[in-house]
Design a protein around this nucleic acid. Structure first.
Lengths: 347, 347
DNA sequence: TTGAAAGCGCTAACAA
DNA sequence: TTGTTAGCGCTTTCAA
């Protein structure tokens, strides 16, 4: 009864199978090195004893945890929840585990949580940080030689950092150009706190590109610290007046949904009176009526690819692909535009 | 340069501080047992060497991982994302780590993922399963003596299982009674797949209770396998005809949001033509316009309390707090009703 | 108050 | 093809 006095260990299995500890271990990890009948005997013994390998032991001994640390700002924005699904699938399929922490967009907490992951001896990390270009914690990771891949953050060209994202600036520009093509001239950007998201800033740059390319004057962004009812006042101030915008470009979908509600409360109809374009392409956006127009990112794929990229960094470059020329550190995944719904021609 | 040739270990710290390995360990774990000046010396050496404890070593040796396994159906429903936040805060504050897996409401995957957590030697688990009353995997955990606490699932009275949830049936009944109080008589329930959620069934029972208590005939529930556009047809069929319901009670908020969109597409106005009541109280519901009426659960608190309860099971009941006349295995947290918004009197 | 020593469960040389 | 052996980094008796 190994369960009563603690679970069976590999030693117990070896004993029961009449082989040495080493052979028992090999039967699991490199069965090719063991005679087939011996493998069977070991497996049989293991089953009989309800043997469950203690990963803590292997991790310690093998000096690799086969764990990937994941730090995301929050899961309460579906973008990241969708991304997590991609990561979980990709990691477990490859025999890796994930350890998740959230940073709440707080750089101090980022540091803390990453230190925590490091103590757990994760082999590498997938991270979404507030600002990839100016991140003390990323610099530290570089210094320590810990492999990581950014998700959503877009590494600067020429940067040593690896990232998987869409082209934030270019895609935002495309989205705003679609607005312009629909006839909009007075377009305003609504964003979460810029400080907390370099993506938001890049998307704003894309807005500026689009406006300028079409001879329009970009306006200052409206930065909301967080989307609560109290922001309705700011939206109201913006949406009123003779020169009121005919379209809002929100740097994420959740924000867009909140803005639309605010506009409705002000008696405005979307998209008849005013258009709203979001960014992210969360599944929920397609569910609401009218459907949320959005710049759609492949969120689940971003998760999968970020993990795949990290795994590739672990592998000792078999058949070394030219590395820097070929796959490149920066992966830009294709985005799409979902128009219609909350976007229409201005009144 | 301990970083080049591998990170510094406790042995290095001990050496640098001129003490034994044991003393160095104590300086961190039981500083009370070590002379103050010695503690300082060790800490100083650790800082100097950028010592980072290897949790894998301690976990293995201490025969406890201080890890909690968490299994949730998905994070893409904000209910669970909100719950995760509560768990993360509670666990990290107590010095525990979390390992998250998702089951996608699939019992086979539940087994698999739990086995995976077990191999990681989690000290216990917080779980949301498809059906707590009939779960092979829960039975197995009981047999093996692995402590776990259910979140959202409500253990049957008299069950040996621990759970933290709201009173699903009672709260649903209250919600439906509010509908009845508003003047509704023809009320239908829309649910996700019953098989995948015992909560959905319990909430349906609450609906039945309410209807019967008021002399109304409960109708069959409409069970949607998943909420996609193709369900609009079923909603249409339900919402049409002379005896069409004047209100829908959806067993979760995400579903409710989808149903509302479907109704809008059918040209119906919510709540003027038809009322919709959700369940869960996700933050998003308060953001949309009109606000989603809902039976509100304290999601973050459910996460916190589930972790707290598990932690309490770990501790050898010190000075047993009278708490609740013995805390009891089943914790029912208070719910609230958020009315107005998508619920109004029938036309 | 401190140290010596024995492992936790496992993998991976090195031998046979 | 299999076995012997030496730890991975840490905690924790047991003695001093």
């Amino acid at each position: 009864m190994p369960d009563a006095a603690g679970a069976a260990t590999l030693v117990d299995v070896a004993q029961a199978a009449g082989v040495s500890l080493a052979t028992a271990s090999r039967a699991f990890n490199s069965p090719a090195l063991v005679r087939e009948s011996t493998v069977q005997r070991v497996l049989e013994a293991a089953r009989h004893l309800s043997f469950r390998p203690n990963l803590l032991g292997s991790k310690l001994r093998a000096q690799q945890s086969r764990m990937i640390g994941v730090m995301l700002p929050t899961l309460e924005n579906a973008v990241f929840a969708e991304c997590w699904r991609g990561m979980e699938d990709a990691a477990l399929a490859a025999g890796y585990s994930l350890m998740l922490v959230t940073s709440a967009y707080d750089p101090a907490r980022e540091r803390e949580r990453i230190e925590y992951l490091l103590r757990h001896r994760v082999d590498g990390m997938v991270l979404t940080v507030a600002d990839a270009a100016d991140s003390a914690v990323l610099d530290q990771l570089d210094r320590e030689g810990v492999p990581y891949v950014l998700a959503y953050n877009q590494a600067a060209t020429g940067s040593r950092r690896h990232s998987v994202s869409v082209d934030n600036r270019g895609s935002a520009r495309e989205g705003v150009e679609a607005l312009i093509a629909a006839g909009h001239r007075r377009i305003r950007v609504v964003s979460g706190a810029f400080m907390a998201s370099d993506r938001a800033r890049q998307r704003f740059d894309g807005y500026r590109d689009a406006m300028r390319a079409h001879g329009l004057a970009p306006a200052e962004p409206l930065c909301l610290p967080t989307h609560t009812a109290s922001n309705a006042g700011q939206i109201r101030a913006l949406a009123a007046g003779p020169d009121a915008p005919t379209a809002f470009f929100c740097t994420n979908d959740l924000l867009a949904i909140g803005v639309i509600s605010d506009l409705k409360r002000l008696g405005l109809r979307v998209p008849r009176d005013i258009s709203v374009l979001g960014y992210d392409g969360i599944a929920l956006g397609a569910l609401v009526e009218p459907a949320l127009a959005s710049v759609v990112q492949p969120n689940t794929e971003i998760g999968e690819r970020a993990v795949a990229r990290l795994l590739a960094r672990f592998a000792p470059s078999r058949a070394k692909p030219p590395d820097d020329a070929a796959p490149g550190r920066i992966t830009l995944l294709p985005h799409t535009l979902r128009l219609g719904g909350t976007v229409a021609a201005p009144a």
